[in-house]
């Protein structure tokens, strides 16, 4: 139970493809948010807050992988890998992305560690969304000089990010992964064995 997950090549590729997929989605979201939504709210000082509504998407790869593989170390490694893959894709935010990605992975890992990698029900998954919200927020606090901002404003940001995380990283990730297991794609992973459905069984 406590030994770290031994990565197979196919898991590494899988985690990287998921990272690319979410990086692609985030990129599209961030761009549509910053060019369509942000201009509308920017005059009110809310331009930078727009991203908070989709922030939960950034945690999805680590949560999804950890939920599917259910082994120690998966969340931190996939979280960090998500950052590295985005840097390799040529993201301009290399300097900030990597520490963020690492801390987000750590936030997810901490929650699963606390439950000893035994429970993966909805409450735990929701907690696993709160973890990275806190770690990413603390990092952004220092980096973005949020101590100089109005407290109510920062608190609002936190609440939005938390809601986004609960929705995307908690609920949606679980729904997606459970459905993947149900259709039989996860046969060789711990989550999939619960739903194992052998095509050769007589119905």
């Amino acid at each position: 139970m406590w030994n770290l997950y031994k990565w197979k090549l196919k898991d590494v590729i899988l985690a990287s493809i998921i990272s690319v997929l979410f990086a692609f989605i985030c990129f599209a979201t961030v761009h549509s948010v910053s060019f369509v939504v942000a201009p509308l709210v920017m005059p009110f000082g809310f331009g930078d807050i727009a991203i908070e509504f989709v922030f939960g998407i950034f945690f999805m790869s680590a949560t999804l992988a950890a939920y599917v593989i259910q082994k120690p170390g998966v969340a931190v490694i996939v979280g960090t890998m998500t950052g590295v893959v985005q840097v390799l894709m040529g993201s301009a935010f290399a300097a900030t992305l990597l520490p963020s990605a690492f801390f987000q992975g750590l936030g997810v890992e901490a929650v699963f560690f606390a439950t000893r990698y035994k429970k993966f029900n909805l409450p735990v998954m929701l907690l696993a969304a709160v973890g990275p919200t806190i770690t990413s927020f603390v990092l952004a606090w220092y980096r973005g000089l949020w101590m100089d901002l109005d407290f109510g404003f920062v608190a609002t940001r936190f609440v939005i990010r938390l809601c986004s995380a609960l929705l995307f990283s908690g609920i949606i990730t679980k729904l997606l992964a459970d459905r993947l297991a149900k259709v039989g794609v996860l046969k060789s992973y711990p989550l999939g064995t619960k739903y194992s459905q052998d095509i050769d069984d007589e119905s």
Binding site: S34, F35, M42, F44, G45, G47, D48, D148, L149, D150
Partner: peptide
């Protein structure tokens, strides 16, 4: 673009 929206944010909520 993002930098400018940060400026406006600081201006109002700093």
């Amino acid at each position: 673009f993002m930098s400018f929206s940060l400026f406006v944010m600081g201006l109002f909520f700093g």
